[in-house]
Design a binder for these strands. Structure first.
Lengths: 158, 158
DNA sequence: GAGTTTATTTTGACGGAATCAAATTCTCGA
DNA sequence: TCGAGAATTTGATTCCGTCAAAATAAACTC
């Protein structure tokens, strides 16, 4: 709790019980939704409003304390791992989400593409697939492999 | 119109005025939302229900006729370019969306990553940034660079 | 071509996720 | 401790998409 206070102080973010509890909640469960975090906080400090959750998480994302992932078809997820360059792997059937170390190394792909005049600040990569449990459940199906949707590294070097 | 009919016939999708109009609409404007497409269709054939739009677009995506992109914080976009391997570049401030060719390094990241037991079928890549117009408008502001978003921060090591 | 089967479209209600706005309460610096 | 400014609560609201049932249209068979 000590270091969490410092995290906030360091960035001039007023320290409140709600913010501290949210920080702890995100630390405890990675890839959680705003709603799940709200529940976690409630079981710890009693109550928190939906709005406070959104405000706070939004602030944390702005300030670089948290990272927000918004996978297609579901609510945003929040994680405490920032600053390292990792991506995500999501199971289409059970939605399990795991981290994937970035293959390309640092700052993947940011400059190699034709940027059309954009100033790119982030490359968001989500790998979609089926996790091992769901694969077993569905009978070790090898279905979708036929048409892999390749994502190419820009740096062709190994 | 002729070839669009064939696209549907080839896949055993019953041909309807709504589906044909939607196909034309998507062809006319890439990266459009369901709502924008509905409007386009309405100005062409008079009317279409919201549900028909969603049903149809959903079917098209399933059948591989269209591709759906779901950028964080906005409605899904649909595009007719399928089968080629390209990604997207989105302006954070005006939402302009452009295609980015995937520099074909013949190494799809699909297998290179530690897949945690997943069977990966797609790698979704979205580059976020600011387009040239918005850069100018904001006075060639290098604003966001001050607080680098996430991973630019600590990955300055080679 | 007419009739049947099947699938699509329409209509209207509904749901979850997130935001807006106003009033209240709290934190922090003087 | 006090007050200004910021955060939190509350409740309504918007946006995107889905559900369910009835009405309608397309495709297949004869």
């Amino acid at each position: 709790m000590f270091s969490n206070v410092n995290i906030l102080r360091k960035r001039r973010i007023p320290v409140t019980a709600q913010r501290l509890a949210l920080l702890r909640a995100v630390g405890a469960q990675p890839h959680a939704t705003a709603d799940a975090l709200a529940e976690a906080v409630r079981s710890e400090i009693g109550a928190i409003s939906k709005q406070a959750v959104y405000n706070t998480l939004g602030t944390f994302v702005e300030k670089g304390i948290l990272r927000r992932i918004q996978p297609a078809g579901s609510a945003a997820l929040y994680e405490a791992r920032v600053g390292d360059n990792h991506h995500h792997l999501i199971c289409r059937s059970c939605r399990k989400t795991v981290d994937v170390a970035c293959v390309v190394g640092e700052r993947p792909c940011l400059k190699a593409v034709d940027d059309s005049g954009f100033q790119i600040d982030e490359a968001e990569v989500i790998f979609w697939g089926t996790c091992s449990e769901c694969l077993e459940k569905s009978g070790a199906k090898t279905a979708r492999l036929g048409e892999p949707h390749d994502f190419c590294e820009q740096t062709n070097n190994p």
